[in-house]
């Protein structure tokens, strides 16, 4: 079952992102929100790891959290707003929040 993983913790303070990337199945997706969008900081190992993810895995980031932190998403990552977040929740079979 395709699962959307939702991360909101900074990838520089714990291992949630790396654990999540290891667990992602071939049809899964990852939505970065809150401090988790810091994974897109240019020149970091976290951003490189995301850019190296297989193309079948959908990578998403919440627009307002990028704006609040003055971060720009690379082309590999699709930027979504709240209606987009709702649409993703419908598109994937399950939503798993890394609390």
């Amino acid at each position: 079952m395709a699962t959307l993983h939702v991360l909101s913790h900074s990838p520089f303070s714990d291992g949630r992102l790396s654990s999540c990337l290891r667990l992602l199945g071939p049809a899964d997706g990852l939505l970065l929100c809150g401090d988790a969008v810091y994974a897109l900081q240019p020149g970091t190992a976290q951003r490189q790891a995301l850019e190296l993810m297989p193309a079948a895995i959908g990578l998403f980031a919440l627009d307002e959290d990028l704006c609040a932190r003055a971060l720009a998403a690379p082309a590999r990552v699709q930027v979504v707003d709240y209606p987009g977040f709702v649409e993703l929740s419908c598109r994937f079979d399950k939503v798993n929040s890394w609390l």
């Binding site: 909101s8 913790h9 900074s10 809150g34 401090d35 929740s89 419908c90 399950k94 939503v95 929040s97 890394w98 609390l99």
Partner: peptide, 9 residues
């Protein structure tokens, strides 16, 4: 159909 959990930061 979906349970969506929100927590943490």
């Amino acid at each position: 159909d979906r349970l969506i959990c929100f927590g943490g930061p």
